[in-house]
Design a protein around this nucleic acid. Structure first.
Length: 271
DNA sequence: ATGGCTGCTTTGAGCAGA
């Protein structure tokens, strides 16, 4: 038995709900972290998602940010121990939601801890927003150090707004030292890996120039001028069970797409 | 060098995204 986990920055769930439900009904994922829902909780489409066969937990705010976790009811019990944001980092912006997931057919009491994170964009190097991104990432590392100690089965998925290496960038020289690619951001990403987490995408052979985000402008998707900034980070226990990984660019080809495509990983169920 | 799309906003020009 196996199941698939995924992450998708939908850039407004109001606009993209049909894309998400269509993708899930085509077995896109059994457990999905969303970012940039851009919905206050009162306007979140809980009923539609539950009727489509998914548990859902979410946290939003007006206009910006907002995160959610969707879990297929035929695979998972209802999410438990839901935590919004990083307890170590007071933040007016809603950028993290975490939950424990138990498989319905499992007698194991060890939960899969699943975090959907939306790392700040950072605007440009040496701006206030970039400084906020740096502080936010420092605090994330401290939080994940605690989470990995508490949860052997930990998956931290989301829009990291960091392209880890030059091979994750369509034109590395154009992006050299720019936001999303700067040395300090890449050092922060490496610090997360140094906690013992693995980038699921790089656990398996991948095509060259497979990205997860393309600018809406200048036909960037058609020309594949993209970056890989959406990631699934897995603890060692989950790394050992990761049978496949990838990025599904099909939803980026639809009418009115998100500028991000979903990234995914297939995990073998615990014995 | 700039802005180029898109979504949001007490609806309409400005912000933010990446």
């Amino acid at each position: 038995m196996q199941f698939r986990i995924a992450t998708w920055n939908v850039n407004s769930l109001r606009v993209r709900l049909a894309h998400v439900l269509d993708w899930l009904s085509a077995d896109g994922a059994d457990l999905l972290g969303l970012q940039e829902t851009k919905l206050i909780d009162e306007k979140f489409p809980r009923a539609e998602i539950e009727e489509a066969g998914f548990h859902v937990v979410y946290a939003g705010q007006p206009t910006y940010n907002g995160v959610a976790i969707l879990a297929r009811k035929t695979v998972f019990q209802s999410p438990a121990n839901v935590v919004i944001n990083n307890p170590l980092f007071p933040d007016e912006q809603v950028r993290i939601i975490g939950a424990d997931l138990h498989q319905i057919d499992s007698s194991d009491t060890t939960p899969l801890r699943f975090l959907s994170v939306y790392v700040p964009n950072g605007a440009a190097v040496n701006t206030d927003k970039y400084d906020y991104k740096m502080r936010w990432l420092s605090a994330l590392r401290e939080y994940l150090a605690q989470q990995i100690a508490a949860y052997p089965e930990l998956a931290v998925v989301g829009d990291y707004n960091i392209a880890p290496e030059d091979r994750d960038v369509h034109e590395p020289e154009l992006w050299r030292d720019q936001v999303l690619c700067s040395g300090p951001e890449r050092a922060h990403f490496q610090n997360l890996l140094d906690l013992g987490l693995k980038d699921a995408f790089r656990l398996h052979d991948q095509p060259e120039a497979l990205f997860s985000w393309w600018d809406y402008r200048q036909a960037a998707f058609r020309r594949n001028r993209g970056l890989r900034i959406d990631h699934l980070l897995l603890s060692q226990t989950l790394t050992d069970r990761c049978a496949a990984s990838g990025i599904d660019t099909a939803p980026r080809k639809l009418d009115q797409p998100s500028d991000h495509a979903p990234a995914w990983a297939t995990l073998q169920s615990q014995k």
